[in-house]
Design a protein around this nucleic acid. Sequence first.
DNA 1: CCATGTATCTCGCCG
DNA 2: CGGCGAGGTACATGG
Lengths: 261, 261
Amino acid sequence: MEKLIQNPDFSEAEEILSEYLKREYTVQINGLCAVNYQGRAKSKLDRGERLVIKKQDSAILVHGPDNYQPKNWQPEVDSYTVEIDEEEKHLILEAKRTNPEEVVEIRFEEIELLTVDQMVDKSELKVSGDEVDIHEAIEEEPGIVEEELKVIEREKETPAGFIDVFARDSDDSYVVIEVKRNPDYNTVLQLQRYVDEIEDEFKGGIRGILVAPKMTDKVLDYLEERDLEFVDVEMADVINSYEAIDNSQKGLSDFGADYEV
Amino acid sequence: MEKLIQNPDFSEAEEILSEYLKREYTVQINGLCAVNYQGRAKSKLDRGERLVIKKQDSAILVHGPDNYQPKNWQPEVDSYTVEIDEEEKHLILEAKRTNPEEVVEIRFEEIELLTVDQMVDKSELKVSGDEVDIHEAIEEEPGIVEEELKVIEREKETPAGFIDVFARDSDDSYVVIEVKRNPDYNTVLQLQRYVDEIEDEFKGGIRGILVAPKMTDKVLDYLEERDLEFVDVEMADVINSYEAIDNSQKGLSDFGADYEV
DNA sequence: CCATGTATCTCGCCG
DNA sequence: CGGCGAGGTACATGG
């Protein structure tokens, strides 16, 4: 940890912030502050105790005592300025960015703790079970949707957009498959459009199937009104399928994550 | 600040975490850790230096050195457990929740800094310029959409859903207005459905207008194909309108934010 | 660089 | 408690 100071006075804090905000350090500030944002919208947050985090890619977050999401933030910042308002006895931190033009102003009344650190984290997050994994699981094992299903194409382009999976069933009928983790009314409309489009192209009865790990009664009704089908897919199957694929691809090249301080 | 310890040994850290994780304190841990998540999906994150934040509502975030978003998290947690793996020399923090059933396991190899604090923040974030503010701005001053427009109803219910604004133009034609900050293809479909619905109800030529602060060429094409219109609204106008309304509502009851430590 | 679509989305609102 | 829609959405990916 490069710096760790409790209750710094503003001139000391200013010096440290001026030096480290623009460099690749993680800066944490616990303190009493008010925050204003103006840009894509406008927001105002009165004084309160918060944790401000400036990350090494220049992103800045203002976290309150609760909630997953920060109260204010800036994903990536072009320039930081720090100054002391002698009259008001405030330390002002301003994070500006262009494109879109926006600015966050953090006005500290007190700083309880200021730390500066350089974090090393080379490892990558591996997630399994997202929508693409469901696509891949279907391609790998079409039986999870329906017996004797044959996948023709993934991401098939049509004038109405991209069809997730295009296939034929045991009767050789064409099947349009739309995959969604959280299906809603719009998903049904989208599937409907694809089916209409494919019917124009291939004529004859085209089946439309919505594949999802969960479903609501209302969306199910919409589907049935339109003679579309629903197939439930188990997330566990998808994750297993992903891990099987992942392992087969790893082979000897996997030496694990490298890490050094 | 209730506690602040640099490089605590695990038994000391375990004691503090056991006491404070389940209480309404903000806990910050800077350290070297690996993280696994399993629940709605599954994820694996190898060891790296990170900042772990447990908030007062029991939410937990694992932040890496960059990016706005945490690498792992849990919005609200039902139970925390802390234990020491003597063999591996790890301190393990487990956050579990039910509904949905999921668990985040954070395995520390080193803890550089551990702080416990209770933040007080009673102030509310006031945002202006979101979608509802655009609705209100239109109702307040329909001229920002079109001259001589008269608003009939907001949130008008139809079988296809709720129409943002229902109005009549200078020719007394009915106008369906859909407001979106980030319009896309689905927005066009939605507007189309509303217009179809209103045409069924009132017969005659119904106009459909998409009101948004920004627009893309492709969505504009979709609109024109369907004889729908687009009106650009300036965010600045919306914010001004909001502030005018806000000020007129404040009056004498505004004594500013109350705050006490 | 902009446009598209997903997210362990989160969060608030409303039934 | 579940469904629905918005977000200063953020973020990755593809053009």
